[in-house]
């Protein structure tokens, strides 16, 4: 990584990243992709999120579904770990709780591929500053 040598270079980098991120989640951009976030804080890992993370990464690749799978910190729903959040391009994020590899398979096949509504959605109950 190159050193940032001024405040201006930092804000330039930020602006580029913001553009990239909005392209990722926009429906119409060529960069557009499905974003999958798997909770991998101590609570999530202890409840089994690591195999879910690996499964998502591997299976989405195998099944030719372009997606960006990332690990994130605690989303706050410890009672429902492992939790994962899926953002389809142009849509609001949807969060699922109690995800194991079986549920992950259902999420890939039914929610991601077919756009069906499936069980296990956790409503977002917070606003982010």
């Amino acid at each position: 990584m190159a050193k940032l040598d001024s405040a201006a270079s930092l804000s330039q980098m930020r602006d580029q990243l913001k553009v990239r991120n909005s392209e990722l989640s926009s429906k119409d951009s060529p960069q557009s992709t499905i974003q999958v976030k798997v909770t991998m804080a101590t609570c999530g890992i202890a409840s089994g999120s690591r195999p879910v993370f690996d499964y998502m990464k591997e299976e989405l690749g195998k099944r030719n579904i372009p997606a960006l799978v990332t690990k994130v910190g605690c989303m706050g729903f410890c009672y429902a770990e492992p939790t994962i959040e899926i953002t389809m391009p142009g849509k609001a994020p949807v969060m699922f709780g109690f995800v194991n590899t079986k549920k992950a398979d259902e999420i890939i096949e039914r929610f991601i591929r077919k756009g069906e509504t499936i069980e296990g959605v956790i409503p977002m109950n917070y606003e982010i500053a």
Binding site: M1, R14, L17, A41, K71, V72, G73, C74, N125, E127
Partner: peptide
């Protein structure tokens, strides 16, 4: 009841091991 995430604004949102995510 409203939760507002200030201290936790990035928790569950960014990859904590990628500084680019934080900068974005």
């Amino acid at each position: 009841a409203k939760q507002i995430r200030i201290a936790l604004r990035n928790c569950g949102v960014i990859d904590p091991e990628r500084i680019e995510d934080y900068i974005s």
